[in-house]
Design a protein around this nucleic acid. Structure first.
Ligand SMILES: [Mn+2]
Ligand SMILES: [Mn+2]
Ligand SMILES: [Mn+2]
Ligand SMILES: [Mn+2]
Lengths: 230, 230
DNA sequence: ATTGAAAATTAGTATGTACTAAATTCGTTT
DNA sequence: AAACGAATTTAGTACATACTAATTTTCAAT
């Protein structure tokens, strides 16, 4: 009930960079396809040459498969570890918001460090006092101890037709300024929103939110992922 | 009110080994005197040659003063950081026991990692929900944000004369087996104990604890630090 | 088919931290 | 004073991770 996220092969503890690379590769390859070196370098804030070197090491460790000049993808083992890190990251975010009065715009940086330092025991204790949540404060799904999580089909608010009513489920950004703004506008997961109108050419959407009128620009409307209905 | 533990000199973030060395040097040099390379190597679980190398680096960074072939001691800046780490370590221990049902025999390993990963902000939030405690679960004092903490003169239970009544204040070991045993025997900080008798030649002490009779060996009696009276 | 730009890799270097083995220094004992 | 053992340092090596500069590969445009 906890061993699932621990390999049977005895492996030396992974380093923090290793864990961050695996997480980043997983997230850049939603479809399971190849991830480009430069994309990885971009999200990790590293030089492409550094990424190439690390990919080589990940391959040697059996965590990734490298197709030279093409890209990289995770092995089963690499994906297992990536999902373990995602569980840790998101549970930590949920815990900080739930028990230490963090807001959703400040949790990411803290979780980015803590995810490498907490024990499995601590993670499961946090999960327990939280009541085993399945979404983090941004609406991202929290994988269970087996690495499984619910997948939902969400529609960007920017694609919702005028007249339709939807419920916000995720905020797909980790920029703290945008997150603060969205929270101030009341556009957070769980909120029911009706699209009143939308201007063309990537224009703003007029919304009805809890009886009030709101306007949200196209960029942010793209980041608000919704499900149909209330 | 928080900047005190952050230097005005812009310094690159310290590494985990650096923080652990500084903490260890501080703790081995209660009197402020020199700390021997081998002692440091022993508590850190490293080869003496490795310690020599690190001491050199700490000196170059202005965190320690090295008297070759004699030993090492901390600079002001090094001591400031050591106290900051001690605050972190002990607050984390207190938090885990207070809010996540950890026991005093399991918190040390977790805190040893987390102390390097938490932000100042998180530490102060933990302090706040704990009510700014001044002792950790083992009775060790928690430095405040300025690095100050209460010093008490404690007597090892092994030195308390028969007939005297004392209150246990600290358990001076981090061995989890010993800590579990002491907790099972009810010998934890806050407990009032009367020494009934003691056998010579480092023999066991007979105690009265909460109306019950207890016997504790010399080794453990040395680790239980007490204050006179109830 | 050639070519040129973008992407990726290699080559070479740096830093921090650890190790073992060899050399040096210190303090004590003779 | 000399010699010895313990403590310490030096020398040389390894590993993980990052960098820049130079080179190679890929692919789309001509
Ligand atoms: Mn991270
Ligand atoms: Mn999140
Ligand atoms: Mn530590
Ligand atoms: Mn403690």
């Amino acid at each position: 009930m906890e061993a699932e996220l621990t390999s049977d092969i005895a492996r030396q503890p992974l380093t923090r960079p290793t864990e961050d690379y695996l997480k980043a590769i997983y997230q850049l390859s939603n479809d399971g396809g190849l991830v480009a070196t430069t994309d990885l370098a971009l999200v990790l804030g590293l030089a492409p040459a550094s990424v190439t070197g690390m990919i080589k090491r990940l391959s040697e460790q059996g965590l990734a498969l490298h197709e030279r000049y093409r890209g990289v993808r995770l092995t089963h083992e690499g994906r297992r570890i990536a999902l373990r890190m995602l569980r840790r990251h998101r549970l930590i975010e949920a815990y900080l918001v739930g028990f230490l009065a963090y807001t959703w715009d400040t949790v990411h940086a803290e979780a980015e460090r803590l995810e490498h330092a907490v024990s499995d025991d601590l993670i499961e204790r946090m999960a327990q006092v939280l009541g085993h949540p399945i979404f983090d404060p941004h609406g991202d799904p929290i994988p269970d101890a087996h690495g499984r999580f619910a997948e939902f089909v969400h529609v960007p608010l920017a694609d919702v037709a005028a007249g339709e009513t939807v419920t916000i489920r995720r905020a797909d950004t980790r920029d703290d300024g945008r997150l603060r703004f969205l929270a101030a506008e009341g556009l957070v997961p769980g909120t029911v929103v009706t699209v009143i109108a939308r201007q063309p050419y990537n224009g703003p959407s007029s919304l009805e939110v809890g009886g009030e009128r709101r306007i949200v620009g196209h960029e942010l409307a793209t980041m608000l992922l919704c499900s149909r209905g209330t």
